[in-house]
């Protein structure tokens, strides 16, 4: 893999250079403690050292709300919303975020492939950046190291005060054409970026734990504390469920159909006519959320559907921690195994 060194002070020049390909979207400071992926207007404002954005990068491909069509009630006709295929560069992306996009690709493109998502995704380029795990990141526990480069076109690894830039794909190489601030370098292995939060088992062993965890008492303990706000779904980079709603203008003649992110933690998510609710209690919904991340899709695809970004935990008003739930399930499982062995 080609490796170059890039001075910290030359990063804005790189961002400006990438602007020739298309709009550049990168992390920016938002308020005092938060970050957000935003289109770059001034490359000096891009922040490459950040822990996590509130909303995941998913928002660029599956927007929080998107118009599907305009309709007219007068003649019962509609006009579809065209989603243009536009080149764009996503700059300063963490490895777990990139992995979440690869998982979203599967969710939106397998079976019937959706054109809205496909068009937004078609000409996207990704430039990764390393990060220092905080108290919430646990991506290593789900098999995603800081330097996991799959999916990226270029990758920036922070080495002391500057960066090493890796060219991962031909598309990445093309993006750099004409950029002259790079100096060939030997890859340096960066030490000391440890994860503070860890799942006790290798992720390979989690499907087994989940196989026996369905009736665990851990769910009730978590449900007891959960306030059912749905933030964990709305900040999760791999959650993709949505709702579809119509809005009519005050004239009552025109309107639009929109789809918006939805949350399986909200009580009406699985309710049907007649008042039947197939996941009536917080317990059912909490369990469903975790099974979606570690069992259902995982059984089919062999990968955890949680990428360990830590958002659901960092932004939960009830301090419910993904890693703690899983470690509790593991502990329960070990206890059950122990009792089984002792009895025999």
């Amino acid at each position: 893999m080609e490796c170059y060194s890039l001075k910290q002070s030359d990063v804005p020049a790189l961002i400006d250079h990438l602007g020739a390909y298309g709009e550049v979207i990168a992390p920016h400071r938002k308020g005092d403690v938060s970050y957000s992926f935003e289109p770059v207007k001034d490359s000096e404002k891009v922040v490459l050292e950040y822990n996590r954005t509130l909303l995941p990068l998913k928002k660029c491909f599956l927007p929080p709300t998107e118009k599907l069509m305009d309709f007219s009630l007068k003649d019962m006709s509609y006009k579809p919303t065209e989603v243009p295929i536009k080149p764009a560069v996503y700059f300063g992306i963490h490895s777990y975020e990139m992995q979440s996009i690869l998982r979203l690709d599967h969710s939106m493109l397998s079976g019937k492939a959706e054109s809205n998502y496909f068009n937004r995704r078609k000409k996207s380029r990704f430039i990764g950046v390393s990060f220092s795990p905080d108290e919430y990141h646990f991506s290593e526990s789900v098999g995603i190291s800081i330097e996991e480069m799959e999916g990226f076109d270029l990758y920036l690894n922070k080495v002391s005060d500057d960066y090493q830039l890796y060219i991962i794909s031909d598309k990445g190489k093309d993006l750099l054409k004409g950029f002259d601030k790079l100096i060939q370098a030997e890859p340096i292995h960066v030490e000391g970026r440890e994860f503070n939060k860890k799942i006790r088992y290798h992720y390979n062993r989690l499907p087994r734990v989940f196989q026996y965890a369905y009736h665990s008492k851990v769910w009730a303990e978590v449900a007891e504390r959960c306030v059912g706000c749905g933030s964990c779904n709305l900040t999760c980079p791999t959650c993709f469920c949505f709702d579809v709603n119509d809005q009519v203008e005050v004239t009552a003649e025109d309107g639009m159909r929109r789809r918006s992110w939805d949350s399986c933690m909200l009580s009406t998510f699985a309710e049907v006519a007649g008042g039947e609710n197939f996941r009536e209690h917080t317990l059912n919904r909490t369990r469903h959320r975790l099974y979606r991340k570690f069992k259902y899709i995982t059984d089919e695809e062999g990968l955890p559907w949680c990428v360990g970004c830590g958002r659901c935990t960092a932004f939960c008003p009830a301090d419910i921690s993904m890693v703690d739930i899983i470690n509790d399930l593991i502990r329960e499982d070990e206890k059950a195994q122990f009792h089984k062995t002792v009895r025999v």
Binding site: G111, K112, D243, R259, D262, F269, F278, Y291, R292
Partner: peptide
């Protein structure tokens, strides 16, 4: 089940997985 999309995307209709 509750169904919004009918095409395996919106997630509403899931029965377990």
């Amino acid at each position: 089940r509750r169904m919004k999309c009918g095409v395996g995307k919106c997630g509403h209709c899931q029965i377990n997985g």
